[in-house]
Amino acid sequence: MTKVVLSGSLKAKAGAEPELDVDARTIRELLTILEERYPGLANDLEQGVAVSIDGQIFRDDWYREIPPDAEVFVLPRLAAG
C-alpha cells in the first residue's frame, strides 16, 4: 500500500482523510482508484491533475511507476504562463 496525500482543494472535494492508503503501481492505477472512490473528484480528474512521486511532478504520464515506499501527492493540475 502506498500513502497518498490529496493536496489543496482536492482533499475537500474528495471529502477524504488527509492521508490515503492506495494499492497502485502506476499513476493510472492511482487515478482509477481515486475516480472510483471519490466521485467529488470527477471534474478535476477529467480536466487532469498532477501527481508528485518522491518530489518529481508528473502531469500526464499515466504509466509512470509508483515505487512501494514512494511519497505521493496528488496536486491540482499545474497551469502556467
Binding site: 496525500v5 493536496s7 489543496g8 508528485s52 518522491d54 518530489g55 518529481q56 511532478i57 496536486l75
Partner: peptide, 9 residues
Amino acid sequence: QSAYGPKFG
C-alpha cells in the same frame, strides 16, 4: 518538505 507537500529534490 515543500509548502505544497512533496519534499524538494
